[in-house]
């Protein structure tokens, strides 16, 4: 099973006044293959930086990030990232936006018949059958994020990186998409690293909740969520275990605010 590992990763930014701001200091985390791991923490704790480094979008200053034991050097075709702001190309139809996931992975303009089928199947999987030829502006926010999800999944990624993907959606849409994400994860079996500031969301979705302390980012506490999967099949949020974990996590985060 693919695994993602941060080993003593250090990252600093230059502040506008020229001082060095340490965002992450000797950060180490092992995301085991096939697991759903969430990272929560106060804003500015470096959790998004963590994900962007794993996606190969920003360099880091020290330490290593390893994918299946190999050092990561840039965006990897084995990973897909889902963004809060989604980032669909406005000039591409739903279908073309999803196809982009494969085109940029394989560096080919034309898809094989098999890949075209995969695009169709992935769109059906996220519930967008019949919307293939729509443009992004014609879709609701929730549907747009389904496209974003399809664009990531069509690459059949070993690791799915998700940066507050549901943060900009309304509460109902968010709940629906959380359940669908869990159901998709049950089928595609990739490893997920999920960033959120929403504790409930983190507990509901994950096997492991990593709580980060304020800057410079470090791991404060790791909580294991033992609620059985699939969690949408019962009211997992109403379980006593859920409330218990949330109170521990909230206590821990409150100290960092």
């Amino acid at each position: 099973m693919p695994e993602l590992e941060f080993v003593n990763v250090r990252k600093s930014y230059k502040s506008p006044t020229g001082e060095n701001l340490l965002a992450l200091a000797d950060f180490s985390l092992k995301v085991d293959g096939g697991r759903f791991v969430s990272v929560v923490g106060p804003s500015g704790c470096g959790k998004t930086t963590l994900l962007r480094m794993a996606a190969g979008l920003v360099p880091w200053d020290g330490g290593e990030i390893r994918l299946d034991g190999d050092q990561l050097t840039g965006p990897s075709p084995k990973m897909s990232m889902v963004f809060q702001a989604i980032g669909l190309m406005p000039w591409k139809s739903v279908q073309s936006n999803v196809a982009l996931g494969i085109q940029l992975q394989a560096h080919r303009r034309n898809l094989t018949a098999q890949e075209t089928d995969l695009v169709g199947a992935t769109l059906a999987m996220v519930g967008l059958k019949g919307f293939e030829h729509y443009y992004p502006y014609q879709l609701s926010g929730g549907m747009q994020q389904r496209v974003g999800l399809a664009r990531a999944l069509v690459r059949q990624p070993e690791i799915l990186l998700m940066d507050e993907p549901f943060g900009a959606l309304d509460a109902q849409t968010r709940a629906v998409l959380q359940d669908e994400l869990l159901s998709l994860w049950g089928r595609v079996k990739s490893t997920v690293l999920f960033i959120t500031h929403d504790l409930d969301e983190a507990i509901y979705l994950s096997d492991l909740v990593v709580i980060m302390g304020r800057r410079p980012g470090r791991i404060k506490q790791v909580l294991e969520v033992k609620l059985p999967h699939p969690r949408y099949s019962y009211d997992a949020r109403a379980e006593a275990g859920f409330a218990h974990l949330r109170s521990i996590a909230w206590q821990s985060i409150k100290e960092e605010l």
């Binding site: 965006p75 990897s76 980032g87 982009l100 996931g101 992975q105 664009r151």
Partner: peptide, 13 residues
């Protein structure tokens, strides 16, 4: 620049 970043994350040259 965000769309450029998205394309880069997907592996775009």
């Amino acid at each position: 620049s965000f769309l450029v970043e998205v394309a880069r994350s997907l592996g775009g040259t």
